[in-house]
């Protein structure tokens, strides 16, 4: 009986360990490098620029929302969904270690949010500029 009980306990401990391990597939810098490979293949490619990314992040692009409508002017702060009011965790990697660690998730959200903010997909150049900016934001 004792053996069974302790086996259960260890199984539980092992399961908890697995679920709490951070499963980040990539680092934000690796994501940036992937974006750079994509951007470098485009005509008129310029080195990524944090300043251009900041500008892009903070202005409106002909529609109702800018990036800051939900993420606020400070990417290290907690944001709030412009429609629903639901809390959005900080977008800057310095303030939120989960950000930009999964390329599929990065592309999913760029697709959605660029459609909402610009009414089109963002270019790899624009994505790289924005991530370069976000990587300069201190907590």
């Amino acid at each position: 009986m004792f053996r069974y009980s302790s086996a259960f306990v260890w199984l539980g401990v092992a399961a908890m360990g697995l679920t709490t391990l951070p499963a980040f597939a990539q680092t934000p810098n690796e994501v940036l490098a992937t974006l750079k490979t994509a951007a470098a293949g485009e005509p008129n490619f310029q080195e990524f620029s944090a300043a251009r990314g900041e500008q892009f992040f903070k202005v409106k692009h002909g529609k109702e929302w800018s990036c800051t409508s939900c993420h606020t002017d400070n990417p290290a702060a907690q944001g709030k969904h412009a429609d629903t009011g639901k809390a959005i965790q900080p977008i800057a990697p310095s303030a939120n270690a989960e950000r930009f660690t999964d390329m599929a998730k990065v592309e999913k959200w760029f697709k959605r949010n660029c459609n909402d903010v610009l009414g089109r997909a963002c270019t790899p150049q624009e994505k790289g500029d924005v991530l370069s900016y976000l990587l300069t934001v201190k907590k």
């Binding site: 429609d83 599929a104 999913k108 697709k111 959605r112 949010n113 459609n115 909402d116």
Partner: peptide
């Protein structure tokens, strides 16, 4: 989901 109450909420 591409026009989900005014937002793009597409999934794979």
């Amino acid at each position: 989901l591409d026009k989900h109450f005014g937002s793009d909420a597409t999934l794979d």
